[in-house]
Design a protein around this nucleic acid. Structure first.
Lengths: 73, 73
DNA sequence: GGAGTAATGACACTCATAGTCCGTTGACTT
DNA sequence: AAGTCAACGGACTATGAGTGTCATTACTCC
């Protein structure tokens, strides 16, 4: 599966666990609201700097972010 | 520390473990040799699609790639 | 010393796309 | 009706993708 979709699904999963809206997470990660929608739906090939901000906003470590079913072979 | 530098260091570390030159890894990941140099030296804010190709070339999982000292808080 | 080779580094450049900002729409809730 | 949320679109600017060129370092061989 497309890495963009995997990342998007993982972000959505974690966002919902935190009870945040897309906009709230977007603000926390300092990205645009519409951009966050695209990311979650796998339409954006995000850079590691933006990914880092989103992971921080999700209050999770890199290792834990990627240690999920989406990223298993 | 800058996420770009962390990623670069981690790539270099894994590349050396495999005994590959930058050029050999670059070819395996289908990126330019000079691009790989820039990545390892933290000068490129790479996208997840390119990162995926490099991680595959390093024969490692996402989780293991990020489960390293560089990415610990 | 000088010639050759392999590996890396440092730029500069073009072109595609990452990322922002404006808005609208539809589903759902109160 | 009014508010919240997700999705989508168009236009725009900033920056990543990808390549070319030259320099440097370290090594080997003559």
């Amino acid at each position: 599966m497309d890495i963009k979709l995997k990342v998007g699904q993982r972000i959505k999963e974690l966002r919902l666990q935190l009870g945040l809206s897309q906009e709230a997470l977007a603000n926390k990660a300092d990205v645009d609201r519409t951009y966050m929608t695209d990311v979650e739906n796998g339409r954006r090939n995000i850079s590691v700097e933006v990914l880092e901000r989103i992971i921080m906003a999700l209050e999770i470590s890199y290792a834990d972010f990627f240690n999920a079913k989406e990223f298993m072979k």
